[in-house]
């Protein structure tokens, strides 16, 4: 378990060359996510299907694998 703690404390490195964004510092990141979520929630009623109850009720599938 000590080794695990060691691993967990190691600084995280980004090695994936195809990643396009870098994670900002933790608190900053949390604020950014919250602001983005607020913006999204502002516009979401315009995207949601109109009659939620009917929309959900009418979606019936045959079971698959």
């Amino acid at each position: 378990m000590a080794e695990r703690e060691l691993k967990k404390k190691q600084s995280q490195s980004k090695t994936n060359p195809e990643e396009t964004t870098q994670a900002p510092a933790s608190s900053e990141k949390g604020e950014k996510i919250k602001a983005e979520l607020d913006d999204l929630l502002d516009e979401i009623d315009g995207v949601l299907e109109e009659n939620a109850e009917e929309f959900v009720r009418n979606y019936v599938q045959k079971g698959g694998q």
Partner: peptide, 20 residues
């Protein structure tokens, strides 16, 4: 609330204009 169930479904919608 059905609106939350509808959002769950719409998260996966393959129409770009409807996908959450």
């Amino acid at each position: 609330d059905d609106r939350l169930a509808a959002m769950d479904l719409q998260y996966h919608d393959m129409r770009p204009e409807k996908s959450l």
